[in-house]
Every structure is written in structure tokens, then in C-alpha cells.
Design a protein around this nucleic acid. Structure first.
Lengths: 128, 128
DNA sequence: TTCAAAAGTAGTAATGGTTACTAATTTCAT
DNA sequence: ATGAAATTAGTAACCATTACTACTTTTGAA
């Protein structure tokens, strides 16, 4: 375990405290509760470092901003385009990664499965 | 087949003329060859309309800008983070979509599988 | 045909997420 | 301790995308 700065620790702690796949802005707000002077740039830089180190993951669902995930185990995501929530799906992609590596003769580091649609809650609650 | 405006037609033609999963900027440059006065905003608006209609698809690989795909058949993508090229993988997700729908009790409209890593060309050409 | 409503457009301004920069602070190996 | 390397707060800049506006084109019913 590396010796993280207080700021990096706060960013990681905030991210790992939730399953909501938050944005940098959300993590910034959380981290400010323990480090009121932390800056947004620091949050972005540490998220970038943590992702490069393979400690966290970045998720792009197609909306305005990037989301992050403290859970790096192989799983997938469902994005509800109505309520904009991202939920985990227990769908492993490890086998597919090996297959794709053979297919392309390259090296696959990360697989991102994103299912987009409308969640149960929104389907029921919304008469549109 | 709808009756598209010349601009919308040019955007769709440009996108369908390549397998490179281009950005809005690239499509804009292509469309300008036939419609020199087309504006970037028009390209964005038409891409957005075409996507909403299900005629094209938007792809987020995690880099700075969105990419688009004129091929809406079910397939996956490999993104080389070194040369930043996006290539097609013949990996169907239809069955997985049905599974996920049962899993969450919602409705899945699109599945995006993105494999990220380093492609064969970059692995061989680069001694890093 | 005619003409008003609807749809689409070019050009430009504004937005907002993210990155870059700078001077100051902290960390850490010697 | 001490100097180099890493990190930070704060702010400015970047740039992909969206919003806005006045104008043009299309459409469809009378």
C-alpha cells in the first residue's frame, strides 16, 4: 500500500464510500467535508493518477461528465437515461477480454460494458 | 426513408463513408467539401437528431470528444489508447441485453461494449 | 397558387467540464 | 538538516458542446 497524501486519500475514500459512480464534482464536495481547502484541480489530478495506477476506474456513459468507480472488479453498468443513475450489473467480461486479445493480436486492459435504457423505477413512475 | 435536408444528408453521408468512428469535427470537415457553408452547430444538431432517431450511434471511449458510428448493427469496439484508433469487434450483445432487462426489470435500448488497451500495431512498433 | 406555421440553418456567443500553470508547501532520501 | 522531487491551492485557459438569434426553406391546408 502506497503512502498517499491526505488529499489523495480523501479522494479515494470519498469514491469508495459510494456505489453511485460519482463525478469529480461530487467527489470534490465530499472531500471538502474533511479537507475544506482541497481544490477541484487536485481532485481531478488525483483521480487521474489513481486511474493510471489501476486503483479506480473511469466510466463514460455519454452524458456531460465522466464518472468514477472505486470498484475495479469485473462488472458492468446500466445507465438510465431518464433518472441518469448508474447501477452495477454482475456481468463479468474477463473471458471476452481474452477472446478479443486473440481477435486483434493486441493487449486488452479494460473492458467496459454499458447498457443504456430506462430503469424499472422510471418505467413505472413515468406515464410518458 | 425520411426526406432529409441537404445538411443532414451530408452529415449522414460523411459518417457512413468511414469505419473510423469519427468525431463531430471530422464530420464537419468532410461535410464542408460538399456544403462549404455548413456550420459546426448544424453538424452537432443533426448528429443529435440522427442518434435520437436511432439512425446512428454515439460512442464514448473516454477521450476528450464523442465519436459517432454509422453502423448500428450490434457490434463492439476496441479503443487503442496509444494511437487512439477505434476498431470494430464482431461481438454481439443482443442476448446480454435481454438478460440485463430481466435482471433489472427495466428496458435496455443500447449496449456498448468497449475494450481498451494497446493494438497490435502499437505493441510491435513501440519499444516503451 | 398562396401564405402562414413549422422546421432547419449559419454564425456567433455562452456554457461548463477539464486541464494547464504558478508559486508555495510538503515529503523523503541522503 | 537539506536539497530535490512530489504535491498542492488557486486561478486562468482550453475546447468540446450547446444555446441563441435572425434568417431561409419546407410543408401542407385552404
Amino acid at each position: 500500500m502506497k503512502n498517499f497524501s491526505r488529499q489523495r486519500e480523501a479522494v479515494l475514500t470519498a469514491l469508495c464510500s459510494t456505489k453511485s459512480h460519482p463525478t469529480a464534482a461530487w467527489i470534490y464536495e465530499q472531500a471538502r467535508k474533511t479537507l475544506p481547502n482541497i481544490s477541484l484541480g487536485t481532485v481531478y489530478r488525483n483521480l487521474s493518477v489513481l486511474e493510471r495506477e489501476g486503483i479506480i476506474r473511469k466510466i463514460s456513459v455519454g452524458d456531460a461528465s465522466e464518472h468514477f468507480d472505486g470498484d475495479i472488479s469485473s462488472h458492468s453498468h446500466f445507465y438510465c437515461k431518464q433518472c441518469e443513475e448508474i447501477t452495477d450489473i454482475p456481468f463479468d467480461s474477463t473471458d471476452a477480454c481474452r477472446k478479443v486479445e486473440q481477435e486483434i493480436g493486441g493487449c486488452v486492459e479494460v473492458a467496459t460494458y454499458t447498457f443504456t435504457g430506462v430503469c424499472k423505477k422510471c418505467l413505472l413512475g413515468d406515464k410518458s
